Amino acid sequence: MICAGRVAIITGGARGLGRAHALELARQGARVVINDIGVGLDGTGGDGAAAREVAGEIRAGGGEAEVHGADVGDWQQARELVDFAVQRFGRLDVLVNNAGVVRDRMFVNLSEDEWDQVVRVHLKGHAATMRHAAQHWRDRCKAGEDVRASVINTTSGAGLLGSLGQTNYAAAKAGIVGLTLNTAAELGRYGVAVNAIAPAARTRMTETVFADTMARPEDGFDEMAPDNVAPLVAWLAARSTEVSGRVFEVAGGTITVINGNTRGPTRDAGRRWRPEELGPVVKDLLDRSPTPLPVYGT
């Protein structure tokens, strides 16, 4: 029960990874608000039945859960979601940003609407909920409270390395890494830790990609089950003061720290470079640098 007494919002909490996060946090003692607008992968519909089902499962197990159908890509609705959690449970301690959509297309065929939808839900949807949660935590901190809050954002291997046919998604997920690093630096003074995970799991968005990745025959361990990612989310939700500004890749039973951008080899001329002399300089720098990992799908 490492999250006992904590209040958490999980966006996109009705299915897949979000559902696994909500159930695990509840098992660990958190009171949870499950946010989901209930649309299909194509953006149509709007049925909250799946979110209510998760909340019912939590309550049946003795936990506390509420449902809120805010569109996190809408600044005002994101505020209403945070306000709802505070009004219902008296506080907010954990924000798990998980909601997302995909509109896959090769870049040369990508429409403006397909770009806007993905960036809106992923990047703006993360920023909007964080903005209003941050204000709640800052107010509590300024009132003299010892705040120990945690944000767990969701990036992707596509955001770290790129992915063919997913330029909109990769750009939004890369933006979430930048959002995570910057807010971790800004919000630490208020007792807020901000981290990100890059999960690999079989969900509605990835079921065709991971359709053939099933359980290991020898031990029955399904490497692509969303439940594999939830334990790290629960630990980050509980241990909010121990780590911040980091990105973790999670797949099956493997957790990897992503080191991000680091400075490599350097050449200093002690003056302004001349363009015609840079060829061998750049070649030398690249020769002494690690080879980048390939973009997914190449």
Rank of each mutant, 00 (worst) to 15 (best):
N98K: 07
R59W: 08
R140F: 05
S111M: 10
G13S: 03
T256I: 13
D113N: 14
I9P: 02
G90S: 01
G125R: 00
H68K: 08
A55Q: 02
N228Y: 00
V72W: 04
L278W: 01
V119N: 07
V194W: 04
G12T: 04
S150G: 07
A60I: 07
A30D: 09
A201W: 02
A193K: 02
A225Y: 06
T206K: 07
E223G: 13
P265L: 06
L232I: 05
A78R: 09
Y296C: 10
A174K: 02
I10S: 06
T183G: 05
V119K: 05
A60K: 13
A133S: 10
S150L: 07
G162N: 01
T206F: 10
L25K: 01
G253K: 15
E145F: 07
N153H: 04
N35M: 08
A171V: 10
V177M: 01
E80G: 12
A211C: 10
E64I: 03
H126E: 12
A158H: 04
I34S: 06
G191Y: 01
V39S: 15
V147K: 09
A230T: 01
A127Q: 15
S150N: 07
E112Y: 14
I9F: 08
T254N: 14
Y296E: 14
A200T: 14
R120A: 15
L164S: 14
W115F: 09
G165Y: 03
D42P: 11
L92N: 05
G5Y: 05
A134L: 05
I10H: 04
D47F: 04
G159Q: 00
E145R: 08
R189L: 06
V102C: 12
A49G: 14
L293R: 13
N228K: 06
N153S: 09
L232M: 08
A251V: 11
A22Q: 03
I58K: 09
R131I: 00
D227T: 11
Q77H: 11
I34M: 06
W235S: 04
V229K: 02
N109A: 10
S163L: 07
A85E: 04
S163W: 02
T44E: 15
A128R: 06
V147C: 15
V282H: 06
I152N: 10
E276L: 05
T298E: 10
A70V: 00
E277D: 12
P265T: 13
V86I: 10
N168H: 06
G245C: 00
G260D: 06
D227K: 15
A185D: 14
F210W: 15
E80L: 13
D139L: 12
G279D: 14
L81R: 00
D36M: 05
A128V: 01
G29H: 11
V82D: 00
R272D: 14
L293S: 15
A149K: 11
